[in-house]
Every structure is written in C-alpha cells, then in structure tokens.
C-alpha cells in the first residue's frame, strides 16, 4: 500500500496516481484527454488481477453478441 509500482513497460506512457483509500466503493480518476479522443478504457489489460467479472472492466461495453464467457481470459 501507499506506494506505486514502477512502470512495467506495458504501455506507451505510465502515470502513477495518488494512492486510493481502499474503503471507497465509488470513485473516479480524471485523465487529461478529451472524451472524444478516447477509444478504449480497460482495467487490468494484463489479466493478472483475479476479477471475478471481467465483463464490466472495459469501456465501451461490448455489444451482447461480442460478449463471451463470464470467466476472465
């Protein structure tokens, strides 16, 4: 806790944000990009975090016919 990891070189740019208070259930980050410039947002594209429902980890949401199994990976 309290310290960010260093850049794993999984992207073109790496930005470490302030630490998050774990008790929060709803929160947000503000990124310096116009919404129209954003093609995709994804939580943990490396698929290492064991999120039990990855369906809602991607924006824009997949259309129903693109939706695969609920399982990660």
């Amino acid at each position: 806790m309290l310290r960010p990891k260093t850049d794993e070189k999984l992207s073109d740019e790496f930005v470490a944000l302030p630490a998050l208070d774990w008790v929060k259930e709803d929160w947000s980050i503000i990124v310096p990009h116009a919404e129209g410039d954003i093609q995709k947002v994804e939580i943990d594209p490396s698929l290492r975090m064991a999120d039990v429902n990855r369906e809602d980890n991607v924006w824009p949401k997949k259309k129903p016919q693109e939706t695969g199994e609920n399982d990660k990976q």
């Binding site: 992207s11 740019e13 930005v15 990009h33 995709k40």
Partner: peptide, 19 residues
C-alpha cells in the same frame, strides 16, 4: 488498479492507482 486508456491515435496510457 491498472487502468489502460487507449487513444484514437493508438497511444496507450497506463494509469496506475496504488492503494
């Protein structure tokens, strides 16, 4: 959380939110 933002230009920016 690692939050990857992919821009229309193809640039990928990883926003890392530690705890």
């Amino acid at each position: 959380l690692d939050i990857m933002v992919t821009l229309n230009s193809g640039t990928r920016v990883m926003y890392h939110v530690p705890m």
